[in-house]
């Protein structure tokens, strides 16, 4: 499998993502600088976390208009799998590849912690070995992870089975007490209409090691490894 990880000025979780993908797939992803405009030949494109362009305008807004994102969009339209994590999810919403926006956390503070997310549907290649209802423990680290979309859009997402992850507790309970950032309907990850683009706020790439963060994120990457 051939994976590209996009790197913008200010991206900072590209190495974590590369380590996770290499661990799961055995092959090293290519890190692609934002000025590139050709992403042909990749089976998977990951837009990783960080603060692209400092997030000074609006999270992901500048990156959304960069040359490389035009290439990501082209490849997605051809059916290549695209995963956006954290800032990557924000970038994908800014480009219109995914609906909705990520607003400032309801608590108005940056949140970094280990948390649980419940898998709402098993969907290759993004959810790997996870089945519907499975709960995994992963990291979150964001200031703007509060997913918002209008009710019609949310209903369309739900109706199309496009909500992939929700914030929950260890037992899989999804309600206001397990909603750490104010996201509509506890949404942590969604798909596009054709099912080949996924965005999520949590960081499965920081849950691939028994000593640091645990290994539950690997369940997701096991699937990505088989994308080719």
């Amino acid at each position: 499998m051939k994976t590209a990880i996009t790197v913008f000025p200010g991206t900072n979780r590209e190495r974590d993502m590369a380590a996770a993908i290499e661990k799961a797939s055995g092959s090293k992803p290519d890190l692609i600088w934002h000025g590139e405009s050709d992403l042909a030949g990749y089976d998977l494109i990951v837009v990783p976390g960080g603060f692209s362009y400092g997030d000074y305008l609006r999270c992901g807004a500048m990156a959304g208009n960069s040359p490389i994102m035009r290439a990501v969009k082209q490849q997605a339209e051809r059916g290549v799998a695209v995963l956006g994590v954290c800032n990557g999810f924000q970038v994908l919403t800014e480009t219109g590849m995914l609906p909705g926006v990520l607003m400032r956390n309801a608590g108005l503070k940056f949140i970094c912690k280990m948390t649980h997310i419940r898998c709402e549907r098993s969907h290759a290649p993004f959810t790997g070995s996870l089945n519907q209802g499975d709960v995994i423990k992963v990291a979150v680290a964001h200031n703007e992870g509060n997913y918002f979309a209008d009710e019609d859009t949310l209903d369309r997402l739900e109706g199309g089975g496009r909500v992939v992850f929700r914030y929950s507790n260890a037992a899989g309970l999804v309600d206001a007490t397990t909603n750490l950032n104010g996201s509509q309907r506890n949404i942590a990850g969604i798909l596009n209409e054709s099912g080949n683009v996924m965005g999520m706020m949590p960081h499965p790439e920081n849950a691939i090691d028994a000593l640091a963060g645990g290994v539950e994120g690997l369940k997701m990457f096991a699937g990505l490894a088989g994308t080719a």
Partner: peptide, 13 residues
């Protein structure tokens, strides 16, 4: 400390 990203890097044992 929940306002500090203490997990980035994946080496925080």
């Amino acid at each position: 400390w929940e306002q500090y990203d203490h997990l980035i890097g994946g080496e925080s044992v």
